[in-house]
Amino acid sequence: MMNTENHSAQTIPYRESSQPRVPWLQRKWMRTILYHGFVALTAIAMIYPILWLFGSSLKGSDEIWTNQAALIPDDIKFDNYSNGWKGFGSITFTTFYKNSFIYAGVGTLLTVSASAVVAYGFARVKFTGRQFWFGVMLLTLMLPIQVQIIPQYIMFNKLDWINTFYPLLLPRLGGQAFFIFMIVQFIRGIPNELDEAALIDGCGKIGIFFRIILPQLKPAIITAAIFSFYWTWEDFLTPLLYLNSPDLYTVSLALRTYSDPSGQTDWGAIFAMSSLSLVPVFVIFVVFQRYLVEGIATTGLKG
């Protein structure tokens, strides 16, 4: 209820008839305060656990469990970060970050660009077998990865690709079903008139894709990039299976190698490195989400 009110207040010019009857709610500043009050409180509740994680990463090893509930440590220490960064052996987190950036960066680039191209094919070109292949693509999403691990491993092992980035990156050349489906849905939300106008102007399917569809897909592509980066960044299973030597480990995989239920664990370092590993994902989000704000509706349409 309240959502729609606030939403409409922002996107359309004021009109008496669309406003609630409660007098004080008609004041714009009142509504602004209500909005910020409500959203900010919810937002704080949402990020509380993350603040706790960050707070714990600044606690000394004696304080982590004894002063568990506290958000702000009694005694702020940055040792956890320097200790954690050391990694293990002579391999530091510098290496893990480099590997993660390769995997997530290149992986995202491949995934998103391939997905957009493939999605256009499914959404706007009527070829024989379209529905069949689209169905097959959806089916690939429904088979748990756990039962595909072994055959996949044997296959990549036969290709002699173990301990390289090939098994991680090459399958991405085809995009990923989730993003293809998502972009298909967005393309189908774009009016056909635009295509047809372009057709009259002499554009082919390929021309329409690059000149009409692609610019309109900006929100979808940015969304896909944010997710793809994050999902690749946090993926530990593929690196676990295919990257053997620690100098190829990614951040998410390295983080998992630290804890053993029966052994000594440097929790401060784990919390510190876990907090730090959120930073790239978060930066990507903050940078990209700016483009979500100026969405399609305001950029206007060009025929």
Partner: peptide, 21 residues
């Protein structure tokens, strides 16, 4: 044109996805 556009997925699926499935 259709198969051209979906070819990245189709080829990757046949090469890497089909056998494990």
């Amino acid at each position: 044109v259709g198969y051209l556009f979906i070819s990245p997925w189709l080829i990757a699926f046949i090469l890497f996805g089909l056998i494990p499935m």
